[in-house]
Nucleic acid binder design. Sequence first.
DNA 1: CTGTTAGCGCTTTCAA
DNA 2: TTGAAAGCGCTAACAG
Lengths: 341, 341
Amino acid sequence: MPVITIKDIARRAGVSVATVSYVVNQTRYVSPELAIRVRNAIEELGYSPNANARSLRQKNTQMIGLIVPDSSNPFFAEIAKGIEDAGYDKGYSVILCNSNAQIERELVYLDLLRSKRVDGIIFIATSNHVEHIRPFATAGIPVVTFYRDNPGLDIDTFRIDNFHAGYIATRHLIYLGHREIACIQPASAITPSAQRVEGYKKAMEESGLVWDEAIMPRGDNRVGGGKDAAQSLIKSGRNFSAVFSTNDAMAIGAMRVLRSLGYKIPQTISIVGVDDIILASYTEPPLTTVSQPKYEAGSQAVEFLIQRIEGGYDQGPRNIVLDINLVQRESAIQYEQILEC
Amino acid sequence: MPVITIKDIARRAGVSVATVSYVVNQTRYVSPELAIRVRNAIEELGYSPNANARSLRQKNTQMIGLIVPDSSNPFFAEIAKGIEDAGYDKGYSVILCNSNAQIERELVYLDLLRSKRVDGIIFIATSNHVEHIRPFATAGIPVVTFYRDNPGLDIDTFRIDNFHAGYIATRHLIYLGHREIACIQPASAITPSAQRVEGYKKAMEESGLVWDEAIMPRGDNRVGGGKDAAQSLIKSGRNFSAVFSTNDAMAIGAMRVLRSLGYKIPQTISIVGVDDIILASYTEPPLTTVSQPKYEAGSQAVEFLIQRIEGGYDQGPRNIVLDINLVQRESAIQYEQILEC
DNA sequence: CTGTTAGCGCTTTCAA
DNA sequence: TTGAAAGCGCTAACAG
């Protein structure tokens, strides 16, 4: 079945293709009479303008590429949703690309997106190896990244203040009266989230408390790592009434083994995490954590991207630090012993 | 900065644009000598073929549209991931569209996807009102849907056997020795998942057990609805040692109130759900449930879609029933009283 | 073995 | 107030 083109409409309405184009896009005055005829023809023939042909002429596609490590990870899924929604409002569609944490696949997708002439790219990289976006930046294709530095490139970046996240989580525990506060830290000290540990230390020191590597086990940032960390925390034989976990996944793992070992949470041990993944509100008890905006970050990212696409901004790179805030649920409470003395 | 086109490459390599096209696409023999020159020019100039121009000629875009109610819902996110991955393997990109459960927005996206000339559409509808995909079907654009009937349209559909899901969940409980089995059912008897209740009834009857509306409260398919249902279950004053919930969300809600009321799960009450949402494996205790393939369903859907796109299939509509299976976790155990007698 | 060229469907300048 | 026509970047006859 032949697809209806602008020519068919022109013929049917007895006008030129130019006129059809003008009424479709409302881009110059057309007499009501002709306009009606055109609209009728469109209606009758069921015409749908070919966006690709349009793009070819206008050199814009109203599409943005989104590269994420894993769109089924609730964290990224939430960001992606924010992007899609904001894009919809602004008239941009999004091409969804999962890198599956493979640099190779990031490269393939980057190429593909360039070929498809997307108007901009939101890139949540897997590694610190972000050199491969250089061609885009230099080719003048707007790019926004998350949680990465892009030295020397004119690219906006969204990040959170990891130090501060660790700091406010720990301060909360201290405020609740806890003095012996354990910390479950990431396996690697060079990841961005390792900064959260620094915030923890700062908060401790500020209050004249000591942090002690003996109760600062490392985990793999996943639920399993949190379980292991909790085990070693118990085995250490040290006292602690609270634990700060550098992310929710490990906090959840820790809660599980602590509970199975007979500890009551929060009655005997308080826990706070960071991230506010959806699971956090469904655990037993619901987890107190430091939340970072995900949906909002996504929509703000397209905002910034579109500014650059449409020429609303052409200064140097912007570094946006997302607001974070403590969400108090039920896994951390007042340290009662203080009162009992 | 001017974008490099095929002409620039031709000029640089001293050949015709046709030759460039042929070496890029490997679509006819080109002498090694010229091929090298072309490849060098491409390398030097950083050429990226314009996929839109190509699409305009070839009348295919290597893109598929995906319409889901909410891509941040883990259930759809998982399906979407399967779609994206399979698409990647087959050389198709996916445009992500959230309908946010609004028919209006489904329509807008459907129009948009038509305009962008996607090669096919995977449509997970919000309502039973799927009439609006008719134009696509009749225009010959392949469409695959989930969980919906498309009477009179040549559209493939993926679904699960809801009756069977309810049946095997209930059979499992019976197999464990339970005889008084409550059922938390959906608010509406006409939704697809209401069939799960029929499966429950069948299993009960088959084993000579009676089902009783007094312990079959209705819920809104969400966690809150499960909580309410559990309350009314308790208020009914009837005995039951197990409950079958027609979905996981309600099962989780029920578990919560039952536990807060002092019931031990699974020691005093066993529970099984349906869906296997990710939360199910993180509850206390982890939920036994009937799982349906999500990732796999997604990739199978693109398989079918691409068959139609590329002419590998042109028979009538296909109705695919996805495999389901019981995943045993810790919320349902043997009914001990039987042994104690 | 390679090049010339028409044309995909649209926008937009230029002319009337 | 409208139309003719060039051209966006590419593919694929067709010709040589």
